[in-house]
């Protein structure tokens, strides 16, 4: 709780606060067997400066929530609203949502052959800021951000995510986070496939960016491991398409002990779903 009051103090120092409100969100995908509902009424409010851990079993819809919020074409919204400072973003294209300040760190970042990281990053920053950063400032900022993430400088000339190791991909996501400075960031299993050193570097990056840019974070994870490095203000349990329980950091410890089985529909267990 000491952690939380410290954050609140920081929040008061920042002039702008923003709010992301998810209300009654229902969404699903079209399958061969017909429509499949995955999000079954999601409600959540996130303010800048807050870190929300979203935990739940495999297949509960955590990633779908991340993709639906950022506008992936595969997911269709049935009902509900998502307001960013009062603007309903569900009607917006993915790039419009990004320009409003939404960022998704993907579980499996996509390779884009032939597009260099520098070209990609500069294009993205230009689009999100609305103007091209001056070349000198840009090069300095990029070098510095890469140095902090302990990334090889040659990395900038490689194609986006192509041939990157799991750890490099995740660091590349954090690099983008630090350069794009969003208002709200979703991290979809940023901790998956990371060894302990890479996990620490990535977590440091999140904490540093949070401190500098004061975004609201939704940290989607299956395991409590990353929560040792990135301290959440709230922990939510997500099961069968909705939030079923909310608490403080202590809830993560409880989940570590008890698992997710009690939140699943009767007759199903985590191991059975996997």
């Amino acid at each position: 709780m000491a952690e939380m009051s410290e954050k609140t103090a920081i929040a008061q120092n920042v002039q702008e606060t923003h709010v992301l409100e998810i209300r009654g969100l229902r969404a699903g995908v079209e399958t061969k067997q017909g429509r499949k509902e995955i999000l079954k009424g999601v409600d959540l409010t996130v303010r800048t400066g807050e870190i929300h851990a979203i935990m739940g079993p495999n297949g509960s819809g955590k990633s779908t929530l991340a993709y639906t919020l950022t506008g992936h074409p595969k997911y269709e919204v049935e009902s509900g609203t998502v307001l960013l400072d009062g603007t309903d973003i569900l009607a917006l294209k993915p790039y419009e949502r990004a320009r409003l300040g939404l960022f998704l760190s993907m579980q499996a970042p996509v390779e884009v052959p032939g597009v260099s990281m520098t070209n990609f990053l500069r294009t993205a920053v230009t689009e999100v800021q609305g103007s091209a950063p001056s070349l000198r400032e840009w090069v300095g900022e990029l070098d510095e951000a890469m140095r902090r993430l302990r990334m090889d400088p040659r990395f900038a000339n490689r194609s986006v995510n192509e041939g990157f190791s799991g750890g490099e991909k995740k660091r590349s996501e954090i690099l983008q986070l630090e350069l794009l400075k969003p208002k709200f960031a979703l991290f979809d299993e940023i901790d998956s496939g990371l060894d302990i050193d890479a996990l620490r570097i990535v977590a440091e990056g999140i904490n540093r960016a949070e401190k500098a840019d004061h975004f609201g974070a939704m940290l989607i994870t299956h395991y409590t491991r990353i929560l040792r490095y990135v301290k959440p203000d709230f922990v939510h349990v997500f099961a069968d398409g909705r939030f079923v329980r909310t608490g403080g950091p202590e809830l993560a410890d409880e989940l570590e002990q008890t698992g997710y089985d009690r939140y699943l529909p009767q007759g199903k267990s985590e191991s059975a779903l996997a």
Partner: peptide
């Protein structure tokens, strides 16, 4: 590739620009 386009768009890059980046990348790679 929808996933490539979505990735670029989710970083604020508009649809046309994203398509051009992907096509340019396709050729640049070769």
């Amino acid at each position: 590739d929808d996933e490539q386009l979505f990735y670029l768009e989710s970083r604020g890059i508009g649809v046309d620009q994203a398509r051009k980046l992907v096509v340019r990348g396709f050729f640049a790679d070769l």
